[in-house]
Design a protein around this nucleic acid. Structure first.
Lengths: 158, 158
DNA sequence: AAAATATGTCAGCTTTATTGACGTATTTTT
DNA sequence: AAAAATACGTCAATAAAGCTGACATATTTT
């Protein structure tokens, strides 16, 4: 039953104006980033459901392919998640044959991570629609524009 | 016990090369977007934990403040989530006094959503560090550069 | 020999999302 | 006026992805 607009105490302090804050806050870019990222990750999401994987698997497969031989610690640092969070996802990828572990040749405590051919294929399949989307967004843009966008994105990082 | 690098079947198909795909895929922008967004949402996340809210609450408070009077259906369309997912988050925000509902004046089935003053304050507090980050990323950039970035981000949307 | 490091693992919890089903009030269509 | 569609709310069950804390093992460093 829709609860008949129940206000516990009928304080009349509703704000009907759209947050005009004298342009101090850049709401436009904030929202553009939200929508851009939302749609950007939707491409691989659709592919991943077929394999029974999620976004977390995508990120792991991506970075292991980009930097084969990276250790578990490297991956934790890159993804900024906890060891326990990574463990489940990584285990599934190893069990499914997309990633392999090799004990570090110098430091044998380490587990160096490598993609298999299937892992590489998956990473490429996931990156492809994202890359196409980026190309579309850059349609007709100059090299200088591309550089500006890269500089902006780099500046957004900590 | 670290499982001694156990490969079920020791197929030798490990790939040690860093995915050189002739530059077909734009890995650089893909990663820049990932890192930029990761750090971009980390600012409000820190504020939200204090209130016991999460990212979902942030998004709802943000859009209701940006467009007071929007309906539940509008919000579902904007966030691209399901009614049930929104329900809990919205209920908490209403119960906590950040958002109020008013039956639509023309169509009384609708629930129009408005922020309270507390809701507006919260939205601004969350947007502020994000906006500062954006300003930092644009440091020294021309208006043309800002426009290029906006065009790119718009082009990334569906 | 002791301490530190890299990794794995167990147990339990939280947030955010999902699907499916159903109820109610209201408006539109027939 | 009756039937259908719409807007919203809610119950129940589930999943993905993260978290904390604690502890074990192998290995390297001190």
């Amino acid at each position: 039953m829709p609860r008949q607009t129940s206000q516990k105490a009928a304080k009349p302090e509703l704000l009907a104006t759209p947050m005009e804050n004298a342009g101090i806050i850049d709401f436009e870019i904030i929202e553009l980033l939200f929508f851009a990222y939302r749609d950007f990750v939707s491409d691989p999401d659709q592919i991943l459901v077929k394999s029974g994987f999620g976004r977390a698997h995508h990120r792991v497969v991506h970075f292991v392919n980009r930097e084969p031989g990276m250790t578990v610690a490297d991956l934790l640092e890159t993804l900024k998640i906890t060891k326990q969070s990574l463990a489940r996802v990584l285990k599934q990828l190893i069990d499914s044959g997309y990633i392999r572990q090799v004990a570090g040749p110098e430091d044998r405590r380490q587990r160096k991570l490598y993609p298999t051919q299937a892992g590489r294929d998956l990473a490429l399949a996931l990156a492809e629609p994202q890359s196409r989307r980026i190309e579309r967004a850059f349609a007709g843009a100059s090299d200088a524009t591309r550089e500006s966008v890269k500089r902006f994105l780099r500046g957004m990082q900590d």
